[in-house]
């Protein structure tokens, strides 16, 4: 993965059955592994947003990829970005043994040191959340695994927002609606 760049592909689609299938087929055909995937309703009602990350050594491939995705009838818009064009985050959940946490300075110490949010404390375990970039959630995992031991760990797919002011989709939709009036 040395000379590969991580690309974030954003896809807006109609809320139709099987859209994810249509998108992943195009990744598969181009031999691209999906690193992370996150799907949710977008800010615009009835439209879903997919945020997908993938490593590639060629921006050309990304261009072709998004064009092939964009071409599908149910897809409204697809584009790709690199990290500096985005504000992006992932969420991670960590479950640790309560006893071990107590041995290592207690909950308050953890919260202050690692800037985390406690979600659950029982006599057996502590569950907390950290938001951040991949490296941040990963390095915390590595550190905790070594010092305290991690019972369970899970990380979400990336969510991302472009740094430009408007969601580009709204412009496109407005334009499409005006074209509809012309027909």
């Amino acid at each position: 993965m040395e000379d590969k760049t991580l690309y974030t592909i954003t896809v807006f689609s109609e809320n139709a059955v099987g859209v994810l299938n249509q998108i992943t087929t195009i990744f598969t055909r181009r031999q691209l592994n999906i690193e992370t995937l996150s799907v949710s309703p977008s800010a615009i009602k009835g439209i879903h947003k997919f945020t997908i990350t993938t490593f590639s050594d060629s921006e050309e491939t990304m261009k072709k990829l998004v064009r092939q995705i964009d071409k599908r009838v149910d897809i409204l818009k697809a584009y790709y970005n690199v990290d500096y064009e985005l504000v992006h985050q992932e969420l991670a959940l960590y479950k640790l043994s309560t006893d071990k946490v107590m041995e290592h300075g207690g909950i308050e110490y953890l919260v202050r040191k690692y800037n985390i949010r406690i979600l659950e404390v029982t006599k057996d375990c502590v569950v907390f959340l950290k938001a951040g970039h991949y490296i941040e959630t990963q390095s915390l995992f590595d550190e905790l695994a070594e010092k305290i031991g991690v019972l369970q760990f899970v990380r979400s797919g990336r969510i991302a927002i472009t740094k430009s002011p408007v969601e580009r989709l709204s412009d496109m939709l407005a334009k499409r609606e005006s074209q509809k009036l012309e027909i």
Binding site: D74, I75, L173, Q179, K180, I183
Partner: peptide, 8 residues
């Protein structure tokens, strides 16, 4: 049908 917003 002659218009779909997701398809140009």
């Amino acid at each position: 049908v002659d218009f779909l917003r997701s398809y140009q």
